[in-house]
Every structure is written in C-alpha cells, then in structure tokens.
Write a protein that binds this DNA or RNA. Structure first.
Lengths: 358, 358
DNA sequence: CTGAAAGCGCTTACAG
DNA sequence: CTGAAAGCGCTTACAG
C-alpha cells in the first residue's frame, strides 16, 4: 500500500488546487468510454443513441457533476440563441419597474429564457453602457424603458439581429415596438371624474415637465378643464404646480395651495409619490374628507386609508406581458413595421375622488 | 458603369438575407488590413499597439458596428469569468426582493458585473431548475433566497468554482455564507416595546409555521411574554393565530379576536401582509387609537396612516449589499469557513406601538 | 447508431 | 510591435 500519491490517473484528482474545474464533455467521454460526439448526443437528447451507451454516459455525467456550457454550444450552433433577454428599467427596486419585471420574467420563463436586468436611474449614458454590456453578452432581445432621447444607435443592433421593444415611453424616432400607458386620455378621464362630482377649481400637481409622460398627463388635465370651461371650470395657473419629485415636495405644495386664498376643492396628482405627498398633507391638515383627490398611478394601502384613494391604475403587469410578447414575436422573425401599443389605465374609485364639491 | 452587383467583395454586402450577422474580429481585421490578433489587442486595449494601427482598427470596428463576443473570449481566457451573477429571490415583484435586488445590482454594477435574476415563488423544484439554468450560463456567483430545505446539491457547484451566498434563510446544512435578519431577537424587542407601554394581553398574528423565519418570530414573541410572566403577561393560546398568508385572512383574524370575550389590547404581527390586514381591521372597526400594533417588516404609507404604524423594519438594502460583498469576496478567492451574518432590524416608532394599555 | 475532422469567435503561448 | 498556430467546449457536416 502506497501512502504517496502517484500520477497514474492524471485527471482523476484535484491536481490544480482546491477548487476543481468543471468537467468537460471530453472528460465525460473518457470516463464513459465513448466519443465526445456521443456525449453531445446524450446531452441534447438525440433519440438515436444506443440505450446502453445513454446509461453509461448519464452515469459518467452524474459522477463528475457535468453541466453543459451553454455559451460554448451556442458558439457553433446555428441559431446562436443565448436564451437570455435584457431588461433595462428605471429602477428594479420601484414598484412599477418590479411589476413589469415580474411579468416579463413570467413570459420568458415559460420559454426557458432568463432575464438580465439593470436599473438606469434616468441616466441616458447608463442606457448606452448597459445596452452595450447586454449586446456583448449576446442577449436575444432587449426591453428598454428609455432614459435617453435618441434611439438611432439601436438600429444597428436590430439589424444585427437583436430584437428591441420599448416600454413606458416612445423611442425617438420610433425604431421599435413600444408599449405605453394612455397617459393623456387617462388623466383627462380622472379630471372629468372630479368635474362630474361638481368640482370646478381642480389643482394639478405634477412631476418634472421634462418627462414626456408628465407632459402627456398635464395635457390630459388641460383637455378636461378646457372641455368644461362652459360649465365654469377654471384654468387658473395658480392651481398648477409642476416639478414635484418627492413626497415631501408634494406635501409642501398641497399645504401651500390649501392655505391660499382661492384654494382648490379637488386635486389631480400625476404620479404616485405626488399622490402620497398630497394624501399626507390632507390627513395632516384634517382636510381629507373635504378636498377630493384623484391620482395617476396606484399607491399601496390606497384602500386602507380613510377615505380610500381613487386612482388611475396603470396596468404594469399587462404592459410587461405585452412587451415580452412583442419581443418574442420579433425574436421569432416578425418583421411587421414597428408600432406603439397603448395599454389603458383603469379608474379605481375608493372614495377620495368621489367627495362632492362643497 | 455596372448596374448588376458583382462578387468582388464577398463579405461586404447583405448576402445572407435581410438581417446581416454580427461582424467578427476576422472581418474587422480584413477591413483594417491587419491580423486578427491585432484587432484583439485593440479591443483589449493592449498598450503596445502602433497608434496608426489602432486608428485603422477602430475605424473598421465603428464602420462594421463591431461588438466583441464576451462568451467567445471567455472560452479561451484563463479566468473564464462571465461577469454575471445569478440572483434567486422569492418574487422580483415584491418589495423585499426588489430592495435586495437593487442593492445587489448596485454592488455588482460598480464592478461591471450584471445580474441574472429569477423568482422562485417558494418552489423547491424551481430553485433547482433555476440554479441549473444559471450554472449552464456559467454565472460567477449565486445569491439565493432558499425555497428548498436541502442545499447539499450546491456543494458540487461550489467545488466547481461557483460562489454561493444565501439570503433571508439559512441553508441546510450551512453550506455557504448567509445573511439573515434577527427575526427572533427583533420580535422579542417589538413585544417588549408593547409590554413597556403597559400591555399584558398581546396577540400574535403570524404566517405559516412551516416557514423558518415565521417560527423564529413566534419564538421571539414567546421569549418576551415569558420574561414578563411575573409582571402579569398572559401566554394565552387564544391570543395566537398562525397560518395567515393574506391581508384578508389577517383582517378576519383580528376582527374575530377583538369581538371575543378576552380581547387583546395589543397586537404583534409577523409580516407585512398580516400587518396591513390588522391595520385595515382596526380602522374599519374604529379601534385604531385604542388597540396597539407593532409589526415585523415595514409597510408602505406607514407614516401617512393615523396613527402611524410602528414596525421593526428589516434592512433589505443592507442585507443585499452585504450578501453581494460576501459573494464577491468568495469569487475573489476567500476560503474562510462559511458563516451566518445577522443584520439587525430597526424599531421605528410611529404611534401605533406607543398606544398605552387601557 | 457512432466517431474523426473542421469550425464557431475569440485568447494564449510562442515566434519573428 | 505584429502575426501564424493551437486551443477553449462545444456543434456541424460528413464518413463509416
């Protein structure tokens, strides 16, 4: 009995240090006593392999803990699909992005495709860098919530075979399919809802005007106010506050509006942080049962608050699902002209939007 | 002048149909009039290349829209890093998972590493399938919120060089580093907080007992109650309701508890859906200013509600950041024994937990 | 039904 | 400073 290791079995033991490398098909083949090609057939479940060999190969794979290297197989394989798609959102941590992400993942997972995601934080430069990082990994397709305002750089990627679908905002120019919310129409609907409850002095509390979605929502507000001019609706610039990006800013803006001389009797808020800030201000000043609110974007706990908060809820899951569906259709060869798809928001009445004008 | 295309420049034009393939280094080399190897040097920014050649190669790359194939370079490259890590969470759409995800992404992005994520929905079988899918893509490391209860199958992956870190729950056995919340200690702290406000009949409303985290939180509740037995704290089984998984179930359980004979004066709720349901029941029955609540997990709008909801907030971002830090240390060669790291939760007093006993 | 050769897009190791 | 050869782990195309 020898106590010193010898070198009769060169590849059998951890010669290269503690972490032994991943076994290759070649090693599996050697252990099973077949050719590399037969192992490849077993891995790819080619049905014409002798069952006895299949058993031997399977045993060798299990013994070595073999896992095929997908990247290596794709290199020579005809279609070259990585079975991975990229998803660029504003922030994987925020509820809208997270809901879109989950819907995309569900659609992809059913097709054995994984999702490589990244947050852009509204940074156009980061959008370009991440697209490049994803292309270098050869994702089969790309879903992007745009942060930049010029998407011509993506045309080359599409021509090279990477499908691209945009979400939440239209690309400029329209270089690919897009799935967006009905920002303008839904906002108008929300404001009309307040008008029909008798309100005539309706404030608009909105996000930065530089965001296209914010502009569309403001346009919808003005549409509804203008329509009701004959019924006495006031287009008072003093009722419009934009550039609100935080709960605190919205809270302060509402407090100031309500303490002023010609205070509004109703508020239309353009996104969820603004809605939360507005609701907070109303509760703090005890005016939550007197001043009506309709918000764009659903907010958590909206039905637990008293009154419940009436909102236009974007259908984030449906947006994500549709985007994924369009992407996979493109990946499968669909070459129809690019178009924008609008997913309607839903008005959810919970109380705050149904408070009548005093 | 010829009007019919000829074949003098074989690779110059779209011969293979509408979608032209991605250019390779070979094609760039041909266009630039240098060898493949020189293009490789330029791509990898090797400093010793003649500046004139660099310029020519760069021009050829831009003209063809060349993008290196990361998978192909990794194949021969020594370290074989894909610069991609896998993240398996309960549901990318839920707030805890999303916050962990964002923290992991931030840590990874600084190191030019992307995140491939997937939701497990508490399905052990899905955990195994997704680990396999990620290993097949040769991720450099793996962060897992376990859904299964036996993690020995991961030892082979670790030996093959894939770093693994667990989050939120300990692996069984402890086959890798783990980052968990102080479930038991924080729960005890929350219940002690209610006891110090004078409460003696404190209900426990909890999730399914089969979840280890739920068990730990219940243990913390019992610890605190037992400690205060001398001060008259009651360990009444009638005050304990477990198996609550939805807002509705928690709401119903609280309604029933409050309408019973020996109703509690305070509630300890073990996770956010249960807390939301409890708060909803209290508001509906008008007892929100009378019955105290402390919840485990922060809930949205907690400071907007009246009273604000006192909670033990898990530090999801810190958990994600630490998990990523540990993972990258392992990927860099750290071979210290695996250990569990506990991230403390923070007690946030907002009003509901400070209501004194009647 | 099985296997030896060539090749995918790139890097390493080695000459010049 | 530059390039021709061999090789990464696998598949394709072709013989047997």
């Amino acid at each position: 009995m020898r106590t010193v290791p010898d070198s009769e079995t060169p590849a059998a033991d951890g010669k290269r240090g503690p972490a032994r490398e991943r076994p290759t098909m070649k090693e599996v083949a050697a252990l099973a006593g077949v050719s590399l090609k037969t192992v490849s057939r077993v891995v790819n479940e080619v049905p014409t392999v002798d069952p006895a060999l299949v058993t031997k190969v399977r045993a060798a794979m299990d013994r070595l803990g073999f896992r095929p290297n997908l990247a290596a197989s794709n290199l020579r394989r005809g279609d070259g699909r990585t079975h991975t798609v990229g998803l660029l959102v504003e922030d994987v941590g925020n509820p809208f992005s997270a809901a879109v992400h989950r819907a995309v993942e569900d659609f992809a997972a059913q097709r054995e495709v994984l999702v490589l995601s990244s947050s852009l934080d509204e940074d156009p430069e980061r959008e370009r860098r991440m697209v490049r990082a994803l292309v270098d990994r050869r994702v089969d397709g790309l879903i992007i919530v745009p942060a930049s305002s010029d998407h011509r750089y993506l045309v080359a990627e599409q021509e090279a075979g990477t499908a691209v679908v945009f979400v939440d905002r239209l690309p400029t120019p329209l270089v690919g399919d897009a799935v967006v919310t009905d920002n303008r129409e839904a906002s108008a609907q929300g404001v009309r809802h307040l008008i029909s409850a008798g309100h005539r002095r309706i404030a608009y509390l909105g996000d930065t005007e530089s965001l296209p979605t914010a502009r569309d929502r403001y346009a919808g507000y003005r549409d509804a106010i203008r329509e009701a001019a004959a019924r006495g609706c006031v287009a008072d610039p003093g009722l419009v506050v934009q550039g609100l990006r935080t709960v605190e800013a919205a809270d302060a803006a509402v407090s100031e509006l309500l303490s002023g001389p010609d205070a509004p009797t109703a508020l239309f808020t353009s996104q969820n942080l603004v809605t939360i800030g507005a609701v907070q201000a109303l509760h703090r000043t005890g005016s939550q049962h007197r001043v009506a609110v309709v918000g764009f974007d659903d907010i958590p706990m909206a039905q637990v608050l008293d009154p419940g908060v009436t909102v236009l809820a974007q259908q984030a899951s449906e947006i994500g699902r549709l985007a994924a569906q369009l992407l996979f259709a493109r990946m499968a060869g669909d070459t129809a002209p690019a178009r924008a798809h609008v997913v309607p928001s839903r008005l959810i009445q919970r109380g705050s939007g149904e408070i009548p004008a005093a």
